[in-house]
Nucleic acid binder design. Structure first.
Lengths: 158, 158
DNA sequence: TAATATCTGACCATCTCTGACCTTAATTAA
DNA sequence: TTAATTAAGGTCAGAGATGGTCAGATATTA
């Protein structure tokens, strides 16, 4: 029994699949009405299910005749992924976002299912708990290990 | 008179046997209600009767519309290696031996080249240097991470 | 009787959903 | 042209709905 968020996600992905463009355009109010929910629910779905990490890009415009566009990002080769990985270095390391990134890489066939699971294993918080590391240190170590591992993956193609 | 745990185990295994997918999806609250017990009883059953060692994999999601999925895992050729991995737990963690083990697993086609490189990356000493861990702690952490990673690899067959 | 297994309940973590209030753009009125 | 109005979309805090964990009580077994 899927929830509202799942339903809206599925609906939008169907629209995207059917669209001849590489994006779809919707109206927040319209969509909210269709699914009998508050408009901000749509923002929630976009944030959770159509994030950068999951390979989508969202644009919008307010005011009369406003709209929301959802783009599916094409991946292609491994090079863009290297850039994504490098960009990790700037921000704080957030495991949940990283997990999304890993899933996306799998969807794009940059890495296999097994490799994805392996990478996720490496950043499991539980493992780091009993070594007297601070939260921050643990995050840094996870980051280092992940970067190292991803480097190896990108060196050797399938 | 079998106990609750046995009943729930039997019920879930029947569901699995009947399912056309290779997993079943349940709701913890629902199941607890059906068996008139507290929800955490379900976790107990999953932990005791649907563990990795017994050949199952459990996934879940919280929040509204949350669920628990139980996968039946195929045994395959990996079983002997699982024993090898378990046997690591007794002794001291020696990186050079581990590297040999990894290479051997690759030769035996249990893991791919990329997976092997990935595993080796995770146990690179250099990475652990700047986190104030003692030699012993670093070894333990490497050990934990490697075990976790290998577990994941053996869960999903090629 | 001691060890092990089962079961419960209190408390925690995460994901979803809503509604009040804010910002921006187009349209209309002055 | 400018100001007011209307019609979008955005943000955020908090409520609701699940599932997770763990210590301790109870039952079973060796």
């Amino acid at each position: 029994m899927p929830n509202l968020t799942d339903c809206i996600e599925e609906y939008l992905k169907k629209l995207l699949a059917l669209s001849s463009e590489r994006f779809i355009e919707i109206q927040r109010r319209e969509l909210a009405r269709k699914f009998a929910c508050v408009p901000s629910q749509i923002n929630y779905v976009l944030e959770r299910r159509f994030s950068m990490e999951r390979g989508y890009l969202v644009e919008s415009r307010r005011g009369g005749g406003g709209w929301i566009r959802i783009y599916r990002i094409e991946a292609g080769t491994a090079q863009p992924w290297r850039e994504v990985i490098n960009s990790l270095n700037g921000r704080e390391f957030e495991p949940s976002r990283i997990r999304q990134l890993i899933r996306r890489m799998h969807e794009e066939k940059i890495i296999s299912m097994r490799e994805a699971r392996l990478l996720e294993a490496v950043i499991k918080d539980r493992i780091y708990d009993s070594f007297g590391l601070s939260k921050k240190q643990a995050r840094e170590l996870q980051h280092e290990l992940l970067s190292e591992a991803l480097e190896e993956l990108l060196k050797v193609s399938y």
